[in-house]
Design a protein around this nucleic acid. Structure first.
Length: 218
DNA sequence: AACCAGGAGACAT
DNA sequence: ATGTCTCATGGT
């Protein structure tokens, strides 16, 4: 089965996801950091706190005391670490001059620049690249690994960069890379969420016969 | 009531 | 290069 075939099944079942769930590019960046190993519902609460405090800007994040910022981030978990990581990112972001100057970087340069921030790893960086800067990078997360290794389309022990390269080259001939990668990652997350927890059978699963869910606990 | 969620860094080996 | 610990709230 080809990668684009899996995509077509998912899209037919779930339709367009119009990700990322955020109002501005900066809000995408904040969400990308806060959602590290965390349920999105909890990230939403933290973002609401930031908005209520008028702190959904890089300047406000930097100016806030650590303990205050951590308190706003509390619902998203790891609040002490994430307060530091968010400040690290905002310092770097403003140091680069914000969105405009960064948007002139070529894809690879921008990716390495974002990755240089302490607290921003490959997945967080690619969330930011794809959903805030609209660059053609394929986001690899735990869901992607699990789904495609169980489908037998990738090896289970592939590293992040190897997986990313596999998806990007495997979909290279498809039109509209950014829009495709945007929808694909969102659909993978949606599919995983539907098959999360108790689901006796894959009723309505777009991948029917080959659907790897549920297996073990998922 | 254990288990997991849209990971990453520090550190040891 | 690869493996293990830690970070932490909230839903099921």
């Amino acid at each position: 089965m080809r990668l684009i075939t899996v995509y077509n099944h998912l899209f037919k079942r779930y339709g367009p996801q119009h990700w990322w769930p955020a109002e501005t590019p900066f809000e995408v960046m904040v969400g990308a950091v806060l959602t590290q190993n965390t349920a999105w519902i909890n990230v939403e609460k933290a973002i609401i706190n930031l908005k209520s405090a008028g702190a959904i800007s890089p300047e406000a994040v930097i100016e806030a005391e650590h303990d205050i910022l951590a308190e706003w981030l509390r619902p998203s978990g790891y609040f002490n670490i994430k307060a530091k990581r968010l400040k690290n990112y905002c310092h770097w972001y403003l140091g680069q001059g914000g969105f405009e100057p960064l948007s002139r970087f070529d894809d690879n340069t921008l990716r390495h620049a974002v990755l240089s921030v302490n607290g921003v790893g490959p997945e967080t960086a690619d969330d930011i690249l794809l959903y805030a800067f609209e660059r053609p990078v394929f986001v690899i997360d735990a869901y992607t690994r699990r789904l495609f290794s169980r489908l037998g389309l990738v090896e289970h022990d592939m590293g992040y960069e190897a997986l990313r390269h596999h998806f990007e080259t495997g979909l290279a001939k498809e039109a509209g890379q950014v829009a495709l990668f945007n929808e694909y990652h969102a659909l993978i997350v949606m599919h995983a969420k539907e098959h999360c927890r108790v689901k006796p059978v894959c009723m309505g699963c777009p991948l029917r016969r080959v659907c790897p869910y549920p297996k073990q606990n998922h």
